[in-house]
Structure formats: structure tokens, C-alpha cells
Simulated scan of single mutants.
Amino acid sequence: MSASPDILCIGSVLWDIVGRAPSHMRQGSDVPGRITRLPGGVAMNIAMTLARFGLRPALLSVVGRDPEGDELVARAEAMGLSVAHLYRSDDLPTDRYMAVEGANGLIAAIADAHSLEQAGAKILAPLVNGPLGSAAAPYEGLVALDGNLTLALLEDIAAAPAFARADLRVAPASPGKAERLLPFLQHGRAVLYVNCEEAGLLCKREFATSRAAVEGLLARGARRVLVTDGGRASAEGTQDGIIERTPPEVMVTRVTGAGDTFMAAHIAAEARGAGREEALEAALKAAADYVSGEIGT
């Protein structure tokens, strides 16, 4: 991809190994189903969705120089994603994510993103002192950042001059990593994308609705936030007000990657010039299409 990217997607780029069963599951269940291996990771999922909406995303992450990494890079290129700025490691293996889903949603998941954590600031070299920007000439475009990075690196990014002019969109990788977003709660430029559980972890309290979660995050100093709540109403808010929309009702066939699809679709809608209400509705529709299986992987 020779053209300049429309957005930088920073974070996890890995293989998703997902087992899905059509029946309800519980701890210890042993049921028939399907197991798939697909390109995944929060940054990768966001980039793939952005490409489907016609944007040119570039990936900043680490991928090993192993057969799995070579295959993953080839798949990314085939989807129109820029891989020119990936850090390819000779020593670190390509990361993986494993999940089990039943008809009652996500049962369990394990994210093996140790290579991303060990690579650390190396993945940011093109943006900090390279072809994409520097402290003296910061990158001024869209950046989608995920919470699979270490807390120390996220803290550095929140204060780094190289990110001072970026339109920074931030999401946790999972509820277990939600508190890594704390450096961006009172950040002057960051937009946070979280679900109700993640909002509660950031605010140290439980929220019954997405609106309440938005109110809580804004009270903590957030500039702008979007909060989803499964099939219930989602909310988007700034200090100027809060809007709510209910997602379309669909049959849920998968859940892994739904939040990433929501975030990417919202970013893409705003990049096209959509207003707050239109962008939120577009994001909810895209996420609903994804979980229903209408959008391919």
C-alpha cells in the first residue's frame, strides 16, 4: 500500500482461535461445534473493519518471523492493510488468542499477547522517530489504540509529544485490562470506547445502564466516551450532552470481535462526516450485522 494511511491501528495483531457451539455451555461442557483460526487481535479487527468501509489502515504491532507470522502478514496485505510499519521480531513468536463461545455468549478466553508486551515501545518507532511522525512533527491523524499494550507504555503514549496532535481513539482489550486505560481518563484528546463492565472497572463502581456509565466516566474527567451494553441501549457522551440508541435485535451467532467492529464502524462513520447520532447508529448496525454473522470474517 503506497498511499498514506487514513488511520494507524496500534496494538494486538495475532491469530484468533475460536471454538463456537450452537448450544448453551457452562464450565466443564464438552459439546460439538466448530473451531476456526482467523486473523484477530483488537488492532487487527479494527483495521479489517475500517478496510471494509473503504479506509486505508496501517498496523503498528509486532509479528514474529515464524510461519504463523508470515501467513498473518500475507492475509493482512490481501485485505488491503498496510504492514510496512510492523515490527517483525526474530525472537518473539506471533501472538495468539483462544476463545470458547456458546449460544449463551463467551464462555472463556485466553489472550497470549506476551510478544506485544515484550516488544514494547519498539512497535512505535515509525511514529516516534520515523516515517509517520516524531516529537517535533507529531502525527495529526486518527489513531486507534488498544489496551493490550502494557500500562507503562500506555502511560508513556498518553504523555508523549508524538501523540499530542492525534485524534486518539482508545479501547481496552478486555474487561481484565480495562484499568490500563486510566491514563486516558483525563486526557485532553482521547475518545474512550468501553462496555458497561469496563466503565465500572475504570470508575470503581457498577453501572446499571450505559447512560449511567457515560455520566460516571465524564464525571471522572473523560472528554468523550462511548459505552455499549450488549443488546441494550448504548450511549455516547461529552460534556455537552449524552445521546442513546438501542441496537437492532438480531440472532447472536458470535461475540468475539463485536466491540472492535463497533469502534471501527463508528470511526469510519465520523471519517465520512457523520454526526453524533448517525455515527452511533451506524456503529450499532455494523456490530449487530457482525454478531448475527451477516458480515464475513
Rank of each mutant, 00 (worst) to 15 (best):
M1K: 00
S2I: 04
S2W: 01
A3F: 01
P5H: 04
P5N: 02
D6I: 01
L8Y: 01
D16T: 04
R20F: 13
S23K: 10
R26K: 14
R26E: 15
Q27R: 13
S29T: 14
S29C: 14
G33E: 12
T36Q: 15
P39G: 13
V42D: 03
V42H: 09
M44H: 00
A47E: 02
L50C: 07
A51P: 02
F53T: 02
F53V: 04
S61R: 02
V62C: 01
E68H: 00
G69L: 01
D70Y: 02
L72A: 00
R75T: 05
R75F: 08
M79E: 00
L81F: 00
A84C: 09
H85I: 01
Y87L: 09
S89W: 05
D90C: 03
D91M: 05
L92R: 03
T94G: 01
A99V: 06
V100W: 09
E101C: 10
G102L: 11
L106E: 10
I107L: 15
A108D: 15
A113N: 11
S115K: 07
A119H: 03
A119W: 04
K122A: 15
V128S: 12
L132D: 00
S134L: 12
V143S: 11
N148V: 08
L149H: 07
A152S: 13
L154A: 04
E155H: 03
E155C: 04
I157G: 11
A162C: 12
F163S: 11
P172I: 02
A178L: 06
L181Y: 06
L181A: 01
P183I: 08
F184R: 08
G188M: 11
R189G: 09
R189I: 06
C196N: 10
C196Y: 02
L201V: 08
C203S: 11
S210I: 06
S210Y: 07
R211C: 14
R211N: 13
A212E: 15
G216C: 14
G221Y: 07
A222L: 09
R223D: 09
R224T: 05
L226E: 09
T228R: 08
D229Q: 13
D229P: 09
G230C: 10
G230A: 11
G230R: 03
G230T: 07
R232G: 12
R232A: 15
Q239D: 15
I242Y: 12
P248F: 07
E249L: 15
M251E: 15
V252P: 04
T253M: 14
G257N: 05
A258D: 10
D260E: 11
F262E: 04
F262V: 03
M263W: 02
A264G: 12
A265G: 06
H266F: 14
A268I: 05
E270G: 12
A271C: 08
A271E: 10
R272Y: 09
R276A: 15
E277T: 10
L280S: 09
L280A: 13
E281T: 09
A282G: 08
L284Q: 11
A286M: 03
A288C: 05
Y290T: 05
Y290P: 04
Y290V: 02
S292Q: 06
E294D: 11
I295L: 13
